[in-house]
């Protein structure tokens, strides 16, 4: 089961973890702050290079 859960997360990364990018951006803007540049890049690409 731990392996299956890991594989499920890994194989569906963009669908599962993608929304957290928007949530992180929202946390900055809700606090009245700019989204830091390095986060903005990751937020835009949403791509992971292994």
């Amino acid at each position: 089961m731990p392996l299956q859960s890991r594989e499920w997360c890994s194989e569906n990364r963009s669908g599962i973890f993608g929304p957290s990018m928007n949530a992180l951006r929202k946390a900055f803007t809700d606090a009245g702050q700019e989204v830091p540049d390095h986060m903005r890049m990751r937020l835009h690409t949403g791509k992971v290079e292994l």
């Binding site: 997360c9 963009s14 973890f17 390095h38 937020l43 992971v48 292994l50």
Partner: peptide, 14 residues
């Protein structure tokens, strides 16, 4: 780092 944070979670920002 590779097995968990990169390959599984897609390396969260920061």
């Amino acid at each position: 780092t590779l097995s968990y944070f990169s390959e599984t979670l897609g390396r969260p920002p920061m």
